[in-house]
Simulated assay, not measured.
Amino acid sequence: MKKIAIFLLLISAFFMACETDFEVNASWKEVTVVYGLLDQSQPQQYIKINKAYLGEGDALQMASVADSVNYNPEDLEVKIFKVKDGAFGSIDTLGFVTLYDTILEKDTGLFSTDENIIYTTPSNFFLTNNADEKDYILSIYNKKTKRIVSAKSNLIHELNLDIPPSKPMGFYGIIPNPVVLPLDKSQTTVNWYHAKNGKIYQIIARIYYKDYFYNDTILNYIDWTVHPDPYDGSSEMHYTFEGDVFVNTLATKITNTDITLIARRLSHVELFFTVGSEDLHTYMAVNEPFEGIVQERPVFTNINNGIGLFSCRYNKSHSMSFPSSTREGLAIDLGSLHFIYP
């Protein structure tokens, strides 16, 4: 980890002959900020490249100006090289791809949304010749300043799930007749195998439900996000979804604000698995909120001649159905939210 600290140098005056005026904003220095996560499960790769800024005036106002945070794309040459270790410590280049600038929509906030410039690969060049066994070097060459910013990352190998295709996501047993409250809840466990180079795992369970109106039916969803789980060294991994948490999550995240709603039914769930690298895990850990009097935190970067993060992740999804007992049980427990069965 590279720790970057900014120190204010306090210069004392000797005797009475001293110069008390000084420039708060020192002479301009180029600082490149880079963020990118390689993911061979996706058709394209995206790299965000910005510049740090320092100037006279309101910093928040400068952040809202595109020229303050963006490079002119014509000034940058952005490439990703596929490499492998050669003889005597050398690096053999197996190929490269040039990234081109594009503009993606960005949520409003402090920073400029006029030109959210992203650099992207024209296609996924990772899916050939054992790509996940290679390393990848990001090179950013500024044609104006002749400055090179670089970083290196490997790839996370494919994530293999161990979930039978017909396995449902169930949280209730057989509903008794007559109904006896509270209903007993059950759990569902999903399994997968460790992906090489993966250091942290996260699952988002996207729960879909249908809202019925007089003239329309809308498929909505809420996300049940599982806290990231560091790799524990096991080759076989699992996570257990609890029935009580399932019901409480739906009760908390779904509201009845539309008076025209007639009823809603549980539909299905899609699990989104994300595996992150060791550098990504470190970056997330460093930037987690923490309590205490001292709020200063170390800064993590793996960018040479710049700051930021260039690393890797892997995404995979899996759909599961809900059994009839879970649909019926939810209609009983959350009837106040207009869930019905069948």
Rank of each mutant, 00 (worst) to 15 (best):
F7G: 13
L8P: 13
A13H: 12
C18H: 10
D21M: 14
F22S: 15
V24L: 13
A26L: 15
E30D: 09
V31Y: 06
Y35R: 15
L38T: 03
Q42N: 11
Y53L: 12
Y53H: 12
E56G: 09
M62N: 14
V65L: 11
V69E: 04
N70T: 06
P73D: 03
P73E: 03
E74L: 10
E74S: 12
D75S: 09
L76C: 01
E77R: 11
A87C: 09
I91H: 00
D92Q: 10
D92N: 05
F96E: 04
D114V: 13
I117V: 10
P122T: 07
L138D: 00
S139Y: 01
N142S: 04
K143G: 13
V149C: 03
K152L: 15
L161K: 08
L161S: 04
P164I: 08
F171W: 02
S186V: 06
T189K: 12
K196M: 11
I200Q: 11
I200K: 11
I203G: 03
D211C: 05
N220D: 12
D223C: 08
V226Y: 04
D229V: 14
S235V: 11
F241T: 05
G243A: 10
N248A: 14
T249F: 00
A251T: 13
K253F: 07
T255C: 05
T260H: 10
I262M: 07
R265L: 11
L266M: 07
H268W: 07
E270T: 07
V275K: 05
S277I: 01
L280P: 02
T282H: 15
N287M: 08
N287I: 09
P289N: 08
Q295P: 08
E296N: 15
R297L: 13
T301Q: 09
I303F: 02
I307W: 02
S311I: 01
C312G: 02
R313D: 00
H318P: 00
M320Q: 08
T326S: 09
E328R: 15
I332L: 03
Y341V: 04
